[in-house]
Simulated assay, not measured.
Amino acid sequence: MFRCQFNGIKALSRSISFTLRKPAPSTLSRGVLVFPSSINKTVPFGPHSQPKKELKCFFSSTALGSARARFRTTQKEPPPQPPLEPEPAPEYHDPPDLPPNEPKRKEPGSGLVKIFLAITVPILLLSVSGDFVRMTVTREEVCEALGLDPTVRPGPKYYDEYIRRYKPEKVFWLNLSEKIKLNFSFCAHNAVGEGESFRWWTPLTAQFNHGGLLHLFVCYTTLKAFAPVLVQLYGNRVTGTIFVAGGIMAQAFVALFEKSVNPFVAMSQEKILNKVKSGLTKDEESQLRRAISFAMGSSTSLMAMGTICAIVWPAMKLNLMFIPIGIPIRTALGAVVAFDIGGMFYDYGIPIGHSGHIGGAIAGVIMYALWIRKLPTVFQRRIAQAMNGRGINIR
Rank of each mutant, 00 (worst) to 15 (best):
G8M: 07
S13H: 13
S13K: 13
R14Y: 04
I16G: 07
T19I: 06
R21I: 08
P23H: 05
A24K: 12
R30A: 03
V32T: 12
V34H: 08
S38Q: 05
K41F: 10
P44K: 09
P44S: 06
F59C: 01
S60W: 03
S61T: 15
R72D: 11
L84V: 12
E85Y: 07
Y92Q: 11
S110W: 04
K114C: 08
K114V: 11
F116H: 11
T120Y: 03
T120I: 01
V133S: 06
R139Y: 00
R153K: 13
R153Y: 14
K157P: 03
D160L: 12
K167D: 13
P168M: 05
F172Y: 12
N183I: 06
V192D: 01
E194F: 01
N209A: 02
L216W: 14
T221I: 08
T222P: 01
F226A: 03
T239R: 10
T241A: 14
T241I: 06
A245Y: 00
V254G: 12
A255V: 09
L256F: 14
S260H: 10
V265A: 06
E270W: 04
N274C: 02
S299L: 04
S299I: 05
I308M: 10
I308Y: 08
A310E: 04
V312N: 01
K317L: 03
I323S: 15
G326F: 12
F339V: 13
D340V: 09
G343Y: 05
V378G: 03
I383V: 13
I383M: 09
A384T: 15
N388W: 03
G389M: 05
G389E: 11
